[in-house]
Amino acid sequence: MKDIVIRTVCRVIVPFVQVYGLYVIFHGHLSPGGGFAGGAILGSSMVLFALSFHLEAGAQKLGHETSSYLESGGGIWYILIGLLGLALGSNFLTNRAAGLGFGLPGQLFSGGMIFLLSLGIGVKVASTMFTLFYNLSEEEGSGGDHQ
């Protein structure tokens, strides 16, 4: 798509969308939202970028390798936080009872592991959307070339 209007608008919009996505992730424990929603917003911003420019341009911004690192990293992060509760002498995925809770309810840095877990989920969801979009569209593109 080489429409200058779309490109310009997207270039302007994408950072805002991403900031909004991060907001949704980070304020998941305070307001409606959370890892899944915020991750979806983040992922869709990248998809938007790739759609409006070119697939390759998108791939330059966020390489396949990086996205698969993020992909696994989100899950590993989640499990490691779960094991943190275990390391602190409590059960798997324990939050406040294991001493992870800090801050007053309502503040940004509060709720202990919930914030961190949301981050992991957000990264995971965003990279999943992006990776899936990329692989499927590349597949289609290469299939078209062969025909």
Partner: peptide, 11 residues
């Protein structure tokens, strides 16, 4: 009070 999250759904 138990989880520190104001948003119950996220909690």
């Amino acid at each position: 009070e138990e989880t520190g999250a104001v948003n119950v759904v996220t909690a």
